[in-house]
């Protein structure tokens, strides 16, 4: 099946009465990728589902004003990333001082999560990733798990490729250190 280009979808969206059809095309094309991107940031399915829905509502609301300065894919990823990060911030704010050991909380939650099927190694890796600073975590997720190019990540996070490479390098070092006990 020939994949419809973003440009074709956006052109369709601008035609009166075709908005929903065009949006459904965007949803079909990007929903899964956006979901996995969000899921790797928020970890849990229920949270990822909420963030995904908010992301696409925002995309729907913003699509009329989308001027095409960036690629649709980049714009969509940027919204998904921002939504996921604000979700985490709100969650942390709500939890407040109730969390004594964030590492244990993530480990326990992942272990108890019926939608997490990783082995001990994968669990350990996810915990180490969750301990990274926000930007390093994002860069690592996109580079390591999603195999994205630095140029793409650069457009999404609005950061130079050089800075991204440095972030990724630091992230890998920290994870290595976390995985090998002294």
């Amino acid at each position: 099946m020939v994949e419809i280009s973003d440009h074709q979808i956006l052109t369709l969206f601008l035609q009166k009465g075709e908005e929903e059809k065009a949006f459904e095309m965007i949803l079909n094309k990007y929903q899964e990728r956006a979901y996995w991107h969000i899921r790797k940031i928020v970890f849990h399915h229920e949270d990822a589902n909420d963030v995904l829905q908010n992301t696409f509502i925002k995309i729907w609301n913003g699509l009329k004003g989308f001027r095409g300065d960036s690629e649709l894919f980049t714009w969509l990823y940027r919204i998904a990333t921002n939504e996921a990060l604000s979700f985490l911030k709100q969650k942390a704010k709500k939890a407040g001082s109730r969390i004594d050991d964030p590492e244990m909380t993530i480990a326990n939650r992942l272990q108890a999560d019926e939608y997490f099927d990783g082995d001990e190694i994968q669990l350990k890796l996810q915990i180490e990733v969750s301990k990274l600073p926000e930007r390093q975590k994002l860069v690592f997720q996109m580079k390591y798990f999603e195999d994205m190019k630095y140029e793409q990540i650069s457009a999404i996070l609005n950061t130079s490729v050089g800075a991204l490479k440095a972030s990724y390098h630091h992230a890998v070092k920290k994870i290595q250190k976390g995985l090998i006990p002294d």
Partner: peptide
């Protein structure tokens, strides 16, 4: 590690189709 890039996360069966319908409903 070997296999660490295998996706350890799961979604409920039929999730994406259901989610698409939910989003379209919301829209």
């Amino acid at each position: 590690f070997e296999g660490d890039k295998n996706n350890p996360f799961l979604v409920p069966p039929g999730y994406f189709a259901e989610s698409r319908a939910q989003i379209m409903q919301k829209i």
